[in-house]
Design a protein around this nucleic acid. Sequence first.
DNA 1: CCGGATCCTCTGCGATACTG
DNA 2: CAGTATCGCAGAGGATCCGG
Lengths: 122, 122
Amino acid sequence: MYIMKENCSIRKVANFLGKRWTLLILLELYKGKSKWKRFSQVKKSLNNITPKILSARLKELEREKLIEKRVNVERFPIKSEYKLTEAGKDFINIIKNIKKWSLKWKEKNEKCDERDCKDCEF
Amino acid sequence: MYIMKENCSIRKVANFLGKRWTLLILLELYKGKSKWKRFSQVKKSLNNITPKILSARLKELEREKLIEKRVNVERFPIKSEYKLTEAGKDFINIIKNIKKWSLKWKEKNEKCDERDCKDCEF
DNA sequence: CCGGATCCTCTGCGATACTG
DNA sequence: CAGTATCGCAGAGGATCCGG
């Protein structure tokens, strides 16, 4: 049905990039030097994301090798932590390119509230 | 609800980039030196796209200034033609960057059938 | 020939509750 | 704490018809 194959590299990127919350999650993990971040930390930062969606997105990004996960099950409470991989950090450059493209071609760049918007850091 | 504003530049791009067919349409218009292409030509190239979706995507891309449209109403049948704007051509570079990123970080690049896949030209 | 209008299906997303 | 399970809805996408 689709001419481009399911596993076509560009299409795969478009497929996760376009999903709701994905971009915000990446930028959230990028903030603060890409340190390990807990599930609940990300959740809190992305105020209205539900655990179901967050979980799904994190799994997808892990599968695509943009983030990595580590779990500490030895003591309670369990900690699951996530951070960008090298590929993930490199992918941030693509997002920066998109930002640059927007700045170049759009008459006015739409600015977000400085307090919350995570892409205005670029 | 979303922290990032509706009109945030990066989010806007992610929103149209992730939609089905968008990428294929851009690449289709990019093929052949970005000449004017008819609605029906694009439709034929993207075998199973329905006119409703194609029309919606073209409108969105026109609104985002990635493509431009010209119409000839003087004679029958009416011709509507589309091609990439300068911004649109520049946007192709972002797609190329995504391709490069994939090549760099994925163990194997998934190749599409040469005959049909439009991103393998890069 | 272009593409809008209608109707219908399907899935992405969200709210809530629940478990190891 | 870190998720999974269930349910429900709205909106995206598809098939088809039709009119300019």
